[in-house]
Simulated assay, not measured.
Amino acid sequence: MTIQEKEQEIIDEFAIYDDWMDKYEYIIELGKDLPLIKEQLKTDDRLIKGCQSQVWLNAECENNKMKFTADSDAIITKGIIALLIRVVNDESPADVAKSEFKFISEIGLQEHLSPTRSNGLVSMVKEMKLNALKAAK
């Protein structure tokens, strides 16, 4: 499945819900399926700067495919990072680096987050792309 197909799948899933409270519940549910980072990898260098809550992100590149794991101390943030990982996991570093994460605006996620959470979302995307750029070298 391409990045675009994965994004469309998310857009279609969110279209089922009319109310943003239901969408938040769905995001929280998605956080329960987050590929969790190992405890010993929860280090300061993996902590995403600019997030209201603590978010750790680990990125590895195996066979030219990015593998992300993460965790957060906030349930909504876990769901958000799970969505981002779902889109770019197992993709090439080049594809991750140029991914536009269009689903974010399509589902209206950023405008339904508090300013600090919205900044955190931008920081998560930026960190994932930076990790992909490092792996592409």
Rank of each mutant, 00 (worst) to 15 (best):
A70N: 10
G31L: 07
W20P: 00
I11N: 14
S72H: 02
E127Y: 00
T2C: 10
K32F: 15
I11L: 13
L113Y: 07
I3R: 08
P115H: 11
S114T: 11
M66E: 05
V87Y: 00
C61K: 02
E111I: 08
D18K: 15
A135I: 03
V122G: 02
D12F: 09
V88H: 00
L121G: 01
I104W: 00
C51N: 01
V88Y: 01
G120M: 03
A70M: 11
D45E: 15
L133N: 05
A59T: 06
P35A: 10
V88G: 00
V88L: 05
S72Y: 00
K42L: 08
A94K: 13
R46I: 01
E100G: 15
E127M: 00
E5W: 07
Q8N: 13
A132I: 04
A59W: 00
C51P: 04
E7G: 06
A59I: 03
E100H: 13
Q52H: 12
K78S: 10
R46P: 00
L36D: 09
K23F: 05
Q4I: 13
L121D: 04
A135Q: 04
E127C: 02
E7W: 07
A59H: 02
K67C: 11
A94I: 09
E25V: 06
D33E: 15
Y24T: 08
P115V: 11
T2H: 09
Q4L: 14
E39A: 14
H112A: 09
V125M: 10
N131G: 04
S123H: 12
D44F: 08
I85T: 02
K126Q: 13
I80P: 00
S105C: 09
F68N: 01
S53T: 08
